[in-house]
Design a protein around this nucleic acid. Structure first.
Lengths: 218, 218
DNA sequence: GTCTATATAGGGATAGAC
DNA sequence: GTCTATCCCTATATAGAC
């Protein structure tokens, strides 16, 4: 069924609102961006903004849904230990990039999830998913003889991977001035996360990982 | 010089305000606690509260100063590898306890430090201090033959220790319901942090650390 | 769909009496 | 030192015209 002109225009406006909101939220923090600011940046009236979104929380929810779709990916099942290391590396970068794009969600994650039950549940499902993915990747590496770790060690390790990946940008934004934060810091983040895994790797795999992360040392 | 009755009363009132603010901030998050709420909980008028603190931020700053004094401790310099492991364990518990007591600071750390330059600088000095302490502890362990790690590995490791220690409670508060969070979760946190160090430890030291953290596995 | 104008509410903070 | 009353500002959200 074809879309008429007005429907198309509505969609474009919704898109503009979401894009600008994301930009402003990431730059200043969601709590520090008013609906009037968003409307103003788009040279649009507040009334018009509220025509498209019932309230500010709906904008946040819409952005969260996109984030959810964006970050919901699985590492490629791989053949061979060397390939598994590469896959881990790539997967980590993709995940960190998604977090970077929606980094406003990670500032004040506590408050955001505390005030919105739905977001909280979804976010926890994402974490569960990621924990399982890391766990599976490690199990594969152990099976391939590229890693030595007990299932218990892997569980604890996976949790640390999640903590560091989740909060890396927050930590960096404290250590540098927030404005200086850039996508380049993702490389350092990936390095930090992979260094959690490194000491459990054996021979070839360990060397391979070291070679991959070397450029990102800082 | 002796204090007169009024001065003593003032001090007591200041203490009551700080204690109640800390309690409420930790329970609900600083942004979700109004000055009227604090005053009400103390059965005190808002005007009176403002007699003792020029504004809400001053209350936060006063609490932060206490946190700073509370967390500013050094690990005991130790003799012997086994002793060093025990020291690390104890030190970590003390630090995590301090964070627990002032956990409201760690929710919305970004916003808090972004809006208050002084707090930001002080907090970064604390982190610098802790990074140096972890670094020194690891260097001691290496010197004692209880750890194998390059200086570069130690630097990256120390950073991961800081990230996990700093954000552990935030992670837990997402994973559990925030109200269910308790001081007992500090044990799990200590376990997570120490598991970062464990794979670099050798023989005795490793076994010793495993034995210490075993009760906290969850 | 978009605008202008405005209602509404909450929270930080102050004035002035006691 | 403490209270009551209230100001003031900001931000969300709505009403109604175009």
């Amino acid at each position: 069924m074809a879309l008429d002109g007005n429907t198309l225009r509505t969609r474009r406006t919704v898109e503009r609102i979401l894009a600008e909101s994301l930009r402003l939220f990431n730059a200043r923090g969601e709590a520090n961006v008013t609906t009037a600011t968003i409307a103003g940046a788009l040279e649009m009236s507040p009334g018009n903004l509220y025509y498209h979104f019932r309230n500010k929380e709906r904008i946040v929810e819409a952005l969260f849904e996109r984030f959810e779709a964006r970050i919901d990916m699985d590492p490629q099942p791989s053949g061979g230990a060397a390939q598994a290391i590469e896959d881990l590396w790539l997967y980590l970068h993709l995940v960190l990039e998604a977090i970077w794009e929606y980094r406003f969600l990670y500032r004040n994650l506590d408050d955001l999830l505390a005030r919105n039950r739905r977001l909280r549940d979804v976010f926890n499902r994402i974490i569960d998913h990621k924990l399982a993915a890391v766990d599976a990747l490690c199990a594969d590496l152990v099976a391939a003889g590229a890693m030595r770790a007990t299932p218990e060690e892997i569980r604890v390790l996976a949790r640390n991977v999640l903590v560091v990946a989740t909060y890396w940008l927050n930590y960096q934004s404290i250590r540098k001035r927030r404005d200086d934060l850039s996508a380049a810091d993702l490389g350092t983040g990936a390095h930090q996360v992979l260094s959690l895994v490194a000491p459990y790797l054996l021979g070839e795999a360990r060397a391979h990982l070291d070679a991959l992360s070397r450029p990102y040392i800082d």
